[in-house]
Design a protein around this nucleic acid. Structure first.
Lengths: 172, 172
DNA sequence: TTATAAAATGCATTTTGTATACATCAATAG
DNA sequence: CTATTGATGTATACAAAATGCATTTTATAA
């Protein structure tokens, strides 16, 4: 489902050795859906609106979940929404001006925080001398900086004439 | 607790807007504990063993959980364990030769997989033309490559004489 | 002005994975 | 043989994501 790292057959035993599929260090479906909505909208003609039901139907995903995703995207100014009959949504900016990292930052909240010593909760006795916080900070920054090099416009492969094919599907 | 990004006061509404603390895109306690065990062991004198109870007591964490962590670390050759009376564990290699990335790869299984089109589960209609998979691959590789630049020996700050202080605490 | 269609909002429920507890088994020292 | 320590497997608790449902608000068309 989508591009996520999630839901594969890799099984690890967690008790004893590794048991089940982990879902940490992965983006949420929330982010997945957010990006896919933006990709969908990027294929619309200028001025044309898409509805939540239309997008949910296209991808075959939960309409209810998408409602929240769309609202969030609107709140942070990635899309513009119009209520009422013939309403819908469209990109608030050109796809080439919407950074993947920017979107992820608004859908994966804890990315910005590497909290080693939470004032209340810190119970790690070595935190005063522990450098892991900065090491992980460093790694997470690398992750986000890489995402920042891409935009929604980069998210569809332009090779092999497939973008034309997808247009047809999208706007059928 | 520890260095993790987890458990902070950042609250987002998830329904409607954002509700609760997300815990995605974060390392598990499993990894947290794994690294902390290795850090602890790196402060032991050569030949000296530590027990699970000792480490659990030192950090004030669940002994039961630590049992699995230790077993996993032994399975992948990071530590050597000895059962029975006067048993315990020690590092299998010098701390400077144990990479953070290497450890994380053995405790966060799904890091290696950016599965966009799972043979059975793929339901994303645009996956044939979707470039998000490679974009996320790229970002995740940046993350891991950064971790690969550090070892367990780098995980304790050597500044301000704190490493001496921690030694005392550790080996008291 | 009324009917309709769309997003906005809030709450409830289900699902899933992590964390934890608990109960034994296996091995080693003395 | 017995005590101690890791190894192993099962069961339970909890938190967060995902999903579903109901209602409200807003805008447009007829």
């Amino acid at each position: 489902m989508g591009f996520r790292f999630v839901k594969n057959n890799f099984v690890r035993l967690y008790n004893a050795v590794w048991i089940a599929k982990s879902n940490k260090m992965q983006l949420t479906q929330y982010t997945d859906f957010s990006l896919r909505v933006l990709i969908y909208l990027s294929q619309k003609k200028p001025g044309e609106l898409a509805t939540i039901s239309e997008i949910a139907g296209f991808y075959g995903i939960s309409r209810n979940h998408l409602v929240k995703v769309v609202h969030n995207l609107a709140t942070y100014g990635f899309i513009q929404t119009t209520r009422g009959k013939n309403g819908g949504m469209c990109l608030a900016r050109p796809a080439a001006e919407i950074g993947i990292g920017e979107v992820v930052r608004h859908t994966e909240p804890n990315l910005d925080i590497a909290e080693c010593f939470n004032k209340e909760n810190n119970s790690c006795v070595i935190s005063p001398v522990c450098a892991l916080k900065s090491i992980l900070d460093d790694a997470r920054n690398s992750f986000m900086q890489t995402l920042d090099r891409y935009t929604i416009a980069n998210a569809l492969s332009q090779q092999h004439g497939l973008s034309k094919k997808i247009n047809i599907e999208f706007l059928r």
